[in-house]
Amino acid sequence: MAELNMADALNLALNQEMENDESVVVLGEDVGVDGGVFRVTDGLLERYGERRVIDSPVAETALAGVSVGLAINGLKPVCEMQFSGFSYQGFHQMEAHAARMRWRTRGGHTVPMVLRMPYGAGVHALEHHSESKEVFYAHTPGLKMVIPSTPRNARALLVSAIRDPDPVVFFEPKAVYRAFREEVPDEEETLPLGESRIAREGDDLTMISYGAMLHRTLEAADTLAEEDGVEAEVIDLLSLSPLDHARFAESARRTGRVVIVHEAHRSFGPAGEIMARLIEDAFYYLEAPVRRVTGFDTIVPLFAREQAYLPDQERILAAARGVLND
């Protein structure tokens, strides 16, 4: 058991999976000698050599497309996109091939790959380095879409993603990489993909979030307890696809009031889908209209104004109090 930040916890997952299974290979830009721009792949090159830790030319289409080929021919590639904002050049490989190969060949070929990438705002980065466009992947049949929130669940989910027989897109909240440490067991730990967790228990209000915004949601929940005497249940989705709708529908039926928080854009965003599921599964139990606190439908601003874009305590609390008073 060691206190690790999320970057180190992900590194532990990669190390142990590469140790346990020689078919696991890592590829990406600057993942070898440099150890990745966020150091997630640090030390892998020295331990596993340049044939299994591939420093790639700058070529996102090739990275995603080559990973499809590696996976078809018996390997388990863990491919890093340096930032999610650069992943779109590889997106067509994920949509046109990774997601479809099993279906197209009626199970003859499969693509057990992981496409991991840092996403989200809050670290004073350049344009194209702060987006949160998980819906592109969550919308695509054939892919799974995972977003951890803490060092421990990041490690366990990455291990599960590597072992999964289908392509998994793994978004890492870069604002959380070094934000805090958590006890992470040395021994192997996995978490089932598609299963959410209750990050805070409560019966008065359901708050649904994931990734970096989970922490702002938890902070708001604590304020509500202190200032309003309201106990909010906070659900950490962990996967957007498959989406654990049973868990939040159950919570919504119990509390009757729901707020959804994410930094992705509002229109056609994850909250829209979650609200639709709530209408299908919990409509008659709702005491108030569901509210969502999201990134705006603007380009994610340059870093001087990124906090204006992100859901903050004021917006989250206003939405929660609105739902409670409706």
């Binding site: 299994r52 090739a62 497309g65 499809v68 390997l75 590639p77 067509h92 490989q93 046109a96």
Partner: peptide
């Protein structure tokens, strides 16, 4: 299988070839 989006299958060959080597 056949691949319809033009050129999109070419990177797969590189991955398959690399895996054969490894």
């Amino acid at each position: 299988p056949i691949s319809i989006p033009v050129a999109s299958q070419i990177p797969h060959a590189v991955g398959i070839g690399y895996a054969s080597g490894l």
